[in-house]
Write a protein that binds this DNA or RNA. Structure first.
Lengths: 126, 126
DNA sequence: GTCAATACTTACATTTTTTATAGTACATAA
DNA sequence: TTATGTACTATAAAAAATGTAAGTATTGAC
């Protein structure tokens, strides 16, 4: 994540794909390891950094920070800092972030469907 | 892609996420760099290896092969080899692969929407 | 015997993503 | 003065994904 090399083939490939193909574009935005889970949680309301951390027991603080920053850059979430000590920071979906809801729903449907089907398949084979 | 280390934290994190969260599960299946574009093309009918290559001008043969293998493993596409020389191989979506259609459609809609919104944002800022 | 066409495979290098670990700032409470 | 809680940051390393370049098998045409 941190730094990407704008001279790499990978970068230009991703750019070209994103230009031509809105679904690939969407995928680069919401395709991070923890991105969809974070968005799913935020669909039910804003959460603090620490609260998100508890929801995702295995994420490191660094990863959580990186993902949140990326989501913020992409205007999926907004970040509100309260001038208190200890600090309090709240994350919330923006309107366009919230509009991910049907996307997530379809992904979820399909995921459930696929999982069922492939586990059946394994039973038959075994 | 090639080899994944089943003892890594990354592997166990992905597994746990996939278990708990169907949308994350779906994302690991269709989240490859070229996956969605390949599926999009196949939505309009089966294609040969070389035809796919032409549709994706910048993909390397290695990448195309890897992505197709992964899609096949995940039962998204089927592969038919014709015993001819030179060889002919056709790739086609399976039923569950075809059922990605609404997912792709939502991703596409959202992608277009997001792109419009962010480009507007840039105009306003600039 | 050489070449062409197709769909790959292989070895290796680079880039990107993710994880590990330790640290920081701040004000209040004890 | 030291400890506490929160939301981070810095640095390094490991792992995963992607790219580069060259090679393979087949057989029919020339």
């Amino acid at each position: 994540m941190t730094e990407i090399k704008q001279t790499s083939t990978n970068f230009s490939n991703k750019s070209a794909l994103s230009d031509e193909c809105p679904e690939a574009y969407a995928s680069t935005i919401i395709g991070g390891q923890w991105t969809l889970v974070i968005c799913s949680w935020l669909l039910s309301g804003k959460l603090r950094f620490g609260e998100l951390k508890k929801k995702l027991p295995n994420i490191t603080e660094r990863m959580l920070t990186l993902q949140l920053r990326k989501l913020e850059e992409n205007m999926i979430i907004s970040r509100t800092v309260y001038a208190e000590v200890p600090p309090r920071v709240e994350y919330e979906l923006t309107p366009i972030g919230y509009s991910l809801k049907p996307v997530i729903k379809e992904l979820e449907n399909w995921g459930v469907h696929h999982k069922k089907l492939t586990s059946k398949q394994l039973e038959t084979e075994g």
